[in-house]
Design a protein around this nucleic acid. Structure first.
Lengths: 238, 238
DNA sequence: TCGTATATGCTTGTATGGCAGTTTCGCCCC
DNA sequence: GGGGCGAAACTGCCATACAAGCATATACGA
């Protein structure tokens, strides 16, 4: 029998003892799968069988199927009718448009942030940046990533752009995925923090043009290592 | 028995004789529902029961459920666990962010269009605009709408922004919905066409700034009648 | 030996039944 | 007559069974 998940053998049995109350099986599976795909536990090209995933999470095929529908809308998986479902390979064409879209959306967010911004959230941003700075010094990549997500999320909610933020999140997963392939050194981590500070400074000054410029620069920096990643993992691309 | 769809009584039995080959029941139902919601056949607040819809389209509840999941991701319906599913009401907060997002995305598209544009599609745009101009003269609102969609789609594909266009479509449905409530006079129709021409002219001249400005102006024009609609249909909003 | 037809094991798609939470309405008690 | 309580009917959620399409291996024939 051919091993269907040869690229990503699951190490641990992910059996859920009892589903936490208030969390649907569909949502649970969707979250787990999304995380597994972004973290490259399921690298691009991995074949995903509804039945297999269902067995792994100890649920029926139906919640798995519905989770896959959600993920396919984001573009993380590609379901081919009657043939199979695979984790989407990364195409430069796709990643390019994703970058443009995210840049456009987050630029709009910071522009709006320059017009009005929730002062409470403004304060929380400072603590987020401090946390991230400490993580950058100690080289804790995981903490950096979560702080990064929190930063951008706080920016969006502070500017009252929750719906836009939802859209950003949907495209962000793709840059997060390639980012998981780049091992960042301490220097790039600290430039990340300084770029964040730059954005906040511009917003504090109500300088929309500067804020937008800083954000665009920041977002382009993220995908700076794309060509190197493409060379290192050619099978993940198409 | 309480009439669950009091706001939107279905006139015609939408029984599908045989599903066209290559079209899944899920996709069929999703398309039908999306159209019904945008065209205000199912106005905001309409209660949608999985079972009822399934019976109406002569399919089982599962495809209906999966279609509703897709629509809920776009934000056209809102499923409340164990409680029910309704066509989302229009909130000014939501429509505002949708406008910002669409503006940001389509601005990015025209900017990219100024850098490079498929000449073949460039030609097709001319015919689209001619068709739309004729429709504007005869006052055919339906033809106008389809031509409008074609125009924006051609812009995106010509600039090689298919993925971004997909995102635009997902937010466009919301502006389309309020647009179906505004009865446009012949004058606004013709300004629409002239605005389209303006955008194309700027792109032809490779003037990114002008193109972006024209697009932003155009998109803001669309929602000009929002306050009037809000006053006319208060129950559709929240 | 090569090409073709067929059988088999996979995949996703659809239908149906039962379950649990939520709301609603009517009855009973105060 | 008014208020609390309980059963019934609704909802979406999940599990299971069946159907249909595709891919590959295999057997058969030229």
């Amino acid at each position: 029998m051919p091993n269907r998940m040869a690229h990503a053998p699951i190490k641990t049995e992910l059996v859920r003892p009892t589903l936490p109350k208030g969390v649907s099986a569909t949502g649970f599976v969707a979250d787990q799968l999304r995380h597994a795909i972004i973290s490259m536990e399921f690298p691009p090209g991995t074949r995903l069988s509804e039945g297999e995933i269902a067995a792994r999470f100890a649920v029926s095929r139906q919640p798995v199927r519905e989770a896959l529908i959600s993920l396919s809308r984001i573009g993380l998986v590609q379901v081919m009718p009657q043939r199979g479902t695979i984790v989407t390979r990364i195409s430069t064409r796709h990643i390019m448009q994703v970058r443009i879209a995210r840049e456009a959306l987050e630029s709009a967010i910071v522009q709006r942030a320059c017009e009005r911004f929730d002062p409470v959230i403004r304060q929380s941003i400072d603590t987020i940046l401090e946390t991230q700075a400490r993580a950058a010094e100690s080289g804790d990549t995981a903490a950096i990533a979560t702080a990064d997500s929190q930063f951008h999320a706080a920016l969006a909610t502070g500017a009252e752009c929750e719906i836009i933020w939802q859209m950003v999140q949907d495209v962000k997963v793709h840059s997060d995925r390639v980012r998981h392939l780049t091992l960042e050194n301490r220097e790039t981590m600290q430039t990340l923090v300084s770029q964040h500070r730059e954005i906040v400074t511009a917003i504090d000054a109500r300088d929309a043009a500067a804020a937008e410029a800083a954000m665009r620069h920041h977002l382009r920096e993220i995908l700076r290592d794309l060509p190197r990643v493409l060379a290192a993992y050619p099978t993940y691309f198409e």
